[in-house]
């Protein structure tokens, strides 16, 4: 595996392997000194053409815990503002000696384009409405941690699927891992075609709520109002918001999830986020371990830079060397 551009490129075995590596990374993260030398000498650059502090910090924390060097590029402080192209930008960064680029862009497909222009590994940290594969991994990991696995589980993804890279990645990951997924949204917030999507569709949250093992709420962006996709946020919340009344109808074991940032009071009621089955903070926590697993899987044992940090999975558990200092 050279790049992580989307869940669509992965097999079930790839996902399972990444989740197994994540187990080790969770263990590392729980240590007093959460750091291993697995990627010492490697350089990971976050290349964020679109701001996302949480995702960038998560990747940088992951890289640091694996002892990789990190660099950070963001559009706000760069020559992109002066009209430099994406290609020139990434070729310039690559020329500085880079093993992996973590890319976020507002346009779908930019990580695919960058992967054609550079020889380093490219990790998609979110591209337009297309994919956000590490989110799908951390979501899968969180579900697996609570429910033992995804096989046979029923997961409802509720809300603005059409404009959601999280939904596209989650649908693919959850179904690959054996879950059955129901998309719950008004038709205006669903993709125009669901041909090839292994999902069921409902326009009635109340009808499907009680059967779910997981209710995954998507962020409802206020700008969707101006596009006449729903009449009002009030009506959206009335039909598709996870209110405290609806949450009371969930199965006792059912998880409530959200990729953040939340619109409290719109897609999810504030009180619901405080319920014990709401695992939203845990999703964030698992994000670092999942991203460690991805970086490790893509970079450990490769031949770049000659730093030779080649470490098979078990050695992750080895105590760090001089870094312990």
């Amino acid at each position: 595996m050279k790049h992580l551009l989307g869940v669509e490129d992965l097999e079930r075995s790839d996902l399972e392997e990444l989740l197994r590596i994540t187990d080790s990374m969770v263990e590392v993260s729980q240590r007093a000194m959460p750091r291993v030398p697995a990627l010492r000498g490697r350089t990971v650059v976050s290349v964020f053409f679109e701001d996302s502090t949480r995702t960038r910090l998560s990747f940088e924390a992951a890289a640091k815990r694996l002892s990789a060097d990190t660099m950070s590029f963001s559009v706000g402080t760069s020559s992109v503002k002066k009209g430099e192209s994406v290609r020139d930008t990434v070729e310039t960064i690559e020329a500085m000696g880079v093993d992996a680029m973590v890319v976020r862009h507002r346009s779908a497909g930019v990580p695919d384009q960058i992967a054609r222009w550079t020889s380093c590994s490219v990790i998609n940290a979110g591209d337009g409405w297309h994919q956000h594969p590490t989110q799908a991994l951390l979501d899968s990991y969180t579900i697996r941690a609570h429910l033992g696995g995804l096989d046979g589980r029923r997961i409802a993804i509720v809300g603005d699927v059409k404009h959601s890279r999280v939904a596209r990645s989650d649908v693919q990951a959850f179904t690959l891992l054996g879950a059955s997924v129901t998309l719950v949204a008004p038709p205006t917030l669903l993709p125009p075609s669901l041909e090839g999507w292994p999902v069921e569709v409902s326009h009635d949250l109340d009808a499907v709520l009680a059967d779910q093992d997981v209710v995954y709420l998507l962020r409802m962006q206020r700008e969707r109002m101006t596009e006449a996709l729903v009449p009002s946020l009030r009506e959206y919340t009335a039909c598709f918001g996870l209110t405290i009344q609806r949450a009371a109808r969930l199965a006792p074991h059912a998880l409530v999830m959200h990729p953040g940032p939340m619109n409290r009071g719109v897609e999810i009621a504030a009180e619901v986020t405080d319920l014990p089955n709401a695992v939203i903070a845990e999703q964030v926590r698992n994000g670092v371990a999942v991203r460690m697993a991805v970086l490790f899987r893509l970079l450990a044992g490769t031949e770049l830079g000659g730093a030779g940090a080649a470490a098979p999975v078990p050695e992750v558990n080895a105590e760090p060397g001089e870094d312990h200092g």
Partner: peptide, 15 residues
């Protein structure tokens, strides 16, 4: 084109 591929690729479509 708005359809199967635009939906999959997350690119806004033209019907």
């Amino acid at each position: 084109h708005e359809g199967e591929w635009s939906s999959r690729l997350g690119i806004p479509g033209v019907p």
